[in-house]
């Protein structure tokens, strides 16, 4: 598999501040992969995502996206390969109505009117917001606004989709809607996904998990491997996933539990077996 994103020795600090918000980060992401990124507030996750999209330029290091090295000349081509959904649903809604907003990216790419209408239509149907095409954002729920943002991304047919805490300002129902939709779209279009999130249970579904701490990539690997390292997760101010949380608590109570990663239903099954084997 070829690498669609490759970041080498990325170093970045914000102007007027010497702290390296990105402190020598390197990694590769292969085509079609789903990578989840976790880390405490201010660890540099959003900064990293923006650097990949060329929204800020590194002090040193290199970003290559789909074979293009990111620099001043390639930045617009790189951005055209990436769809970005941000945290605050209100602050990324550019259009005056739902349809206008979805069309915004297409307008920027000089797509002709007939194609644009067709693409907007199709994208809105995919996120099940076609009935709301003429509505203004003021009347929509947070979850609906984020679905519109996803439609805007889909209409551009990007190779990579980055979600920076796209569900963190939503209520549980809105969150569920957006996550399910994302899975559905990923199945269909096979794009590469980077998700930044604080919801540890959401990361268990990813192919790979990155842990960022104070600007460094301190751990990366399959979720099973990283999520079973409860000591590291707790040390870095993160949550334990449900199954591991129960295992962790039982271990504290001197119950012997398996070492390897288990999700919650595996833990439940294991416990029930233990109980029945005793009788």
């Amino acid at each position: 598999m070829n690498n669609i994103i490759s970041v080498q020795n990325a170093i970045f600090s914000y102007p007027g501040n010497d702290i390296h918000v990105l402190n020598d980060i390197s990694f590769d992401v292969s085509q079609g992969e789903w990578v989840a990124i976790i880390g405490h507030n201010g660890s540099g996750k959003s900064t990293l995502a923006k650097a990949i999209d060329g929204l800020l330029s590194l002090d040193s290091g290199q970003v290559v996206v789909d074979g293009l090295e990111l620099n001043e000349n390639t930045v617009w081509d790189v951005r055209s390969k990436i769809g970005f959904v941000f945290q605050n649903p209100d602050n990324q809604f550019v259009g005056a109505t739902v349809a206008d907003d979805v069309a915004f990216g297409l307008e920027n790419r000089h797509v002709d009117h007939a194609t644009m209408v067709a693409k907007v239509d199709e994208a809105l149907k995919l996120v099940r917001m076609d009935k709301y095409a003429d509505r203004e954002p003021a009347g929509l729920s947070g979850g609906q606004k984020q679905r519109v943002a996803l439609a805007g991304v889909i209409a551009m047919q990007p190779k990579i989709v980055i979600l920076d805490e796209a569900t963190s300002m939503l209520d549980p129902q809105g969150r569920q809607e957006v996550i399910e939709l994302l899975h559905e779209l990923k199945q269909r279009y096979k794009f590469t996904v980077l998700t930044i999130t604080h919801d540890i249970d959401e990361t268990a579904l990813a192919d790979r998990l990155f842990v960022i701490d104070d600007g460094s990539l301190i751990s990366s690997g399959e979720p099973e491997k990283i999520l079973s390292d409860s000591k590291m997760l707790l040390e870095k101010g993160l949550d334990l996933p449900l199954g591991e949380h129960i295992k962790h608590d039982l271990k504290e109570l001197k119950i012997e539990v398996p070492e390897e990663y288990m999700n919650s239903s595996q833990v439940v099954n294991w416990l029930c077996q233990q109980l029945s084997s005793m009788e």
Partner: peptide, 22 residues
């Protein structure tokens, strides 16, 4: 935030932009 979002969606000035709303 809005400026960042617009830039991420490929906005680089009005030149040559097509229009959805005719």
């Amino acid at each position: 935030d809005l400026a960042t979002a617009m830039e991420a969606r490929g906005y680089s000035g009005g030149e040559g932009r097509t229009k959805y709303r005719l």
